[in-house]
Amino acid sequence: MDPFVVLVLCLSCLLLLSIWRQSSGRGKLPPGPTPLPVIGNILQIDIKDVSKSLTNLSKIYGPVFTLYFGLERMVVLHGYEVVKEALIDLGEEFSGRGHFPLAERANRGFGIVFSNGKRWKEIRRFSLMTLRNFGMGKRSIEDRVQEEARCLVEELRKTKASPCDPTFILGCAPCNVICSIIFQKRFDYKDQQFLNLMEKLNENIRIVSTPWIQICNNFPTIIDYFPGTHNKLLKNLAFMESDILEKVKEHQESMDINNPRDFIDCFLIKMEKEKQNQQSEFTIENLVITAADLLGAGTETTSTTLRYALLLLLKHPEVTAKVQEEIERVIGRNRSPCMQDRGHMPYTDAVVHEVQRYIDLIPTSLPHAVTCDVKFRNYLIPKGTTILTSLTSVLHDNKEFPNPEMFDPRHFLDEGGNFKKSNYFMPFSAGKRICVGEGLARMELFLFLTFILQNFNLKSLIDPKDLDTTPVVNGFASVPPFYQLCFIPV
Rank of each mutant, 00 (worst) to 15 (best):
M271S: 09
Q184W: 07
R26V: 11
R329C: 13
K118E: 14
T386K: 15
N218G: 09
G384P: 00
P37L: 02
P30Q: 01
I19P: 05
M255S: 05
I45M: 12
L90P: 03
Y483A: 04
L440T: 08
Y347R: 01
T386L: 09
I215S: 04
L197V: 07
G111I: 02
I331C: 13
M271K: 08
F448P: 04
L195T: 15
P480A: 12
P37D: 00
V248T: 06
A106T: 14
G98A: 15
Y189H: 07
T371D: 07
N41P: 01
L313Q: 03
T348M: 09
G384S: 06
P211V: 11
R442T: 12
S303H: 07
G228S: 04
M136P: 14
L395H: 10
N217L: 09
P402N: 14
P30N: 02
A430P: 02
M240K: 01
D408R: 04
G117L: 03
F239S: 14
E281Y: 13
I244A: 03
F187Q: 06
R206G: 09
Y308S: 08
D46F: 04
V248D: 00
P227A: 08
G298K: 01
L312I: 09
E203P: 05
G417K: 08
G416P: 06
L77E: 00
L54E: 02
T34G: 06
L458D: 01
D414H: 07
L195E: 13
F110T: 06
N423Q: 12
G228R: 06
H396S: 09
F168G: 12
Q324I: 12
H316I: 03
P227M: 07
P63S: 11
M406C: 13
K118H: 09
I381L: 10
R26Q: 12
L11C: 14
M198V: 13
L29M: 15
F476V: 15
E318M: 12
V208F: 10
V355S: 03
A103E: 05
N474Y: 08
D360E: 03
G332S: 07
G384Q: 05
E92M: 08
Y347V: 05
L156D: 00
P166V: 05
Q278S: 13
T210Y: 09
R97S: 02
K84N: 10
S280A: 07
L440S: 03
V82K: 01
R307K: 15
I42F: 15
P346R: 04
G437Y: 03
K432N: 15
E72A: 03
I359S: 08
T348P: 01
E253T: 14
I488T: 15
G62A: 00
T304D: 10
S162E: 15
I19R: 15
N202T: 14
G111K: 03
E354R: 01
P367M: 04
E400M: 07
G298E: 02
I488P: 05
N457V: 08
V145S: 03
E85N: 07
R124Y: 03
L170S: 05
L201V: 11
V394K: 01
S180I: 05
L366F: 11
C435N: 01
I112A: 06
F94I: 03
G137F: 11
A321T: 14
